[in-house]
């Protein structure tokens, strides 16, 4: 059935053209091209099939990269969500809530580059016989431990980097979860109190279930960020000392090793890791419509 429309005079394409021209040139085309390039050699001249992927999944250097991203995914997301949730619930109980939230939120406004400098400075290490000028090691020594070279010691440096990420993003989790918390009607909490629930029971049986969807949104955002993490690693270690991650590895493949085939393959792996989250987003969006 053809509808005759007297209403429309302007073409939607006039309004969409600038956006989709840019999206096409800078996102849609490059993404497909990168997938294509990942099957070619370092100069994108010779087709090599899956060689780039096979290399990435078998070489010890790059297997460490996957391990590190997995650590980021689990520890960074887990710690940030937990801290954000805890602080959201706790700050909600005090009068200086706004100030406390602002303080935790400030790092969100700062660049990862500046944050990396800040944390390198926090982690400064001097041999045990010298005075410690980094806060973390000064505290360690004061508590009677030996100072640790946080950035270069392979057993701890990933945790140190992840901690700096948690410092940056907890404010985000806190603000979003706190907004969700404000959305829970007072009556529900009061009803639970009247029913005799303790504050702990209220947290586990009322608040947590009602915050579920907000927490999922926060967690998805953090997972995506953990997969894409770049600046912190680039500035703090450049991926040395077994702290490399996918995004930084791609940068290295491009500019240090000049291997555009492998760099593309790293990017494609990153995309594949994110596709399920993309599907989740689309599903959520369609449900909301």
């Amino acid at each position: 059935m053809r509808e005759r429309v007297g209403k429309l005079t302007a073409s939607p394409w006039l309004y969409l053209a600038p956006a989709f021209a840019l999206l096409g040139v800078f996102l849609l085309y490059p993404v497909t091209n990168t997938v294509y390039l990942s099957f070619f050699d370092r100069r994108s001249e010779v087709f090599v099939g899956l060689d780039n992927y096979i290399y990435l999944f078998t070489h010890p250097d790059t297997l460490v990269v996957f391990r590190n991203n997995l650590m980021w995914l689990v520890l960074f997301t887990g710690a940030t969500v937990t801290l954000g949730l805890l602080l959201a619930v706790l700050t909600n109980l005090v009068r200086y809530e706004a100030m406390a939230k602002a303080i935790v939120f400030v790092p969100m406004a700062v660049s990862f580059t500046a944050a990396a400098v800040i944390w390198r400075f926090m982690y400064i290490y001097q041999p045990a016989e010298f005075v410690q000028t980094g806060v973390v090691n000064a505290v360690m020594v004061a508590l009677g431990f030996d100072p640790i070279a946080w950035i270069t010691t392979r057993s701890v440096n990933n945790f140190a980097l992840i901690a700096s990420g948690v410092w940056m993003w907890t404010g985000f989790a806190l603000v979003v979860i706190s907004a969700g918390l404000k959305g829970i009607p007072t009556e529900i909490i009061e009803a639970a109190r009247v029913d005799g629930a303790t504050e702990t029971q209220i947290f586990w049986h009322v608040l947590l279930p009602m915050l579920r969807s907000v927490i999922v949104v926060v967690a998805v955002t953090l997972v995506i960020n953990s997969l894409k993490v770049f600046d912190l690693v680039y500035v703090m270690t450049f991926g040395n000392f077994e702290t490399d991650v996918l995004a930084n590895r791609m940068f290295k493949e491009m500019f240090t090793f000049g291997n555009f085939g492998r760099a593309s393959a790293v990017a494609v792996i990153l995309l594949l890791a994110i596709v399920p989250l993309m599907a989740l987003n689309i599903r959520r969006f369609r449900r909301e419509q």
Partner: peptide, 17 residues
């Protein structure tokens, strides 16, 4: 929906081209 999908595409995918 294309726009929604592009929300999370890592820009790393676009750097080389």
């Amino acid at each position: 929906l294309v726009v929604v999908a592009l929300l999370v595409v890592p820009i790393q995918l676009t750097l080389i081209p």
